[in-house]
Computed example of a mutant assay.
Amino acid sequence: MEKNFDSLPESRKQQLMAFDRLLTIMDELREQCPWDRKQTLESLRHLTIEETYELSDAILENDLPEIKKELGDVLLHIVFYAKIASEAKTEGTFQFDIRDVLNGICDKLISRHPHIYGDAVADTAEAVKQNWEKLKLKEGNKSVLSGVPASLPALVKAMRIQEKARGAGFDWDEKQQVWEKVEEELQEFKDNFNIETEQVIDQKEAEGEFGDLLFSLVNYSRFVDINPETALERTNKKFIKRFQYLEEASKADGKALGEMTLNEMDVYWNKAKELKI
């Protein structure tokens, strides 16, 4: 439904004017700036991935000013891709602009939320997710899992695979069942690759068993409402901060990191823990 601009609340007018300003700047840069004029869909791809990770870092740090900045960078890339696509002149090339992008996502949101814009009923978040997957199959997806991008990092991919399988009803009923599976996979790994012996192990088989163990842990994380990607990244950040404290504190004491024993380094590591680093 088309809305009259003058009838909109002032806050919405300001939002639309800000978006129009970005579109205008994008038009100007694409026409006048040598770097912006040179960019293609392919050349922007790795930069978009980088910006997305920077946004992710800001979210994990709960740094709202940085989140605002990184959201702007991501939004710029969306506008940039749409601008490039709108310039496609080759015969047979599919063209679209930012209006098509916006209308496309609006249409999808409306069709995927029949409990809001139709007669369907979905009283819980889980019911909404199940409806979403059913609708995607009706729209032509050949598999519930076909919507999982092949290039996702393995940990995130495991999460998405499990979430989508759950949406189709393929999941455990109780978290205790899932934990039993974790223990089963851990025991299989220990039985096949005993850490107390020096025997040569089959690396391919070990990798497979370890993958099964990780997959089961990711599965359990869903049942206790823990995002494993976020949990692991927070641990990564914590390790980095404590290790950097170890480096700085030992250097201040005149010690060389590479010449210290593990016990000596543990003193600084435990101090970092005491300091809540």
Rank of each mutant, 00 (worst) to 15 (best):
E61M: 06
T197M: 02
T48M: 11
N103D: 13
E87Y: 03
D20C: 05
G104I: 03
K138S: 09
A206M: 05
R242F: 03
S250V: 07
E50T: 06
Q15F: 04
I49G: 05
E247Y: 13
L55I: 04
R45Y: 14
F96L: 12
F96C: 08
L217K: 00
L262R: 14
K164Y: 10
F19Q: 14
V267H: 06
L137F: 01
L186D: 07
D6H: 09
K204A: 10
A127V: 07
D202Y: 01
I240A: 14
L29A: 08
Y245V: 06
S221G: 01
I67V: 15
L44D: 03
T90M: 08
E31R: 13
F239D: 12
K190M: 06
Q14Y: 06
K68D: 13
D20Q: 14
P34M: 03
Y220T: 00
R160W: 07
R30F: 07
G92H: 05
E66H: 10
A127L: 07
G167H: 04
E229S: 10
N270T: 10
N194V: 04
K38S: 15
E50Q: 11
R30D: 05
K251S: 12
M1W: 01
L152N: 07
L109W: 09
K69S: 15
D100P: 03
C106H: 13
E180T: 11
M1K: 09
K138E: 13
N103E: 11
L213V: 08
G208D: 05
G147N: 07
Y220K: 00
S43A: 07
L246K: 11
A249D: 11
D123Q: 08
T48V: 11
K89I: 04
S43H: 01
E247I: 14
I59T: 03
Q95W: 02
D107T: 12
E51S: 03
Q203G: 02
F239P: 01
A256M: 14
V224M: 06
K13S: 01
Q14W: 01
W35T: 12
L41N: 10
V79G: 02
E139R: 10
K3M: 11
L55H: 05
T40I: 05
S146G: 14
A122C: 06
L22K: 08
Q15G: 06
L22P: 00
E139M: 11
K237R: 15
L135Q: 12
R222N: 02
Q244L: 12
S43Q: 04
E163K: 09
I161V: 15
A127Q: 15
F80C: 10
I277T: 08
S216V: 08
L214A: 02
L76M: 12
L246Y: 09
D225A: 06
E229T: 13
E139A: 15
E66G: 07
K83M: 04
D6R: 08
V178S: 02
H113Y: 05
D6G: 02
E61N: 08
Y220N: 00
E196W: 07
A256I: 14
E139Q: 13
S221K: 00
V200A: 15
K241F: 06
A127T: 06
W269P: 01
P34C: 00
S56H: 12
Y220V: 02
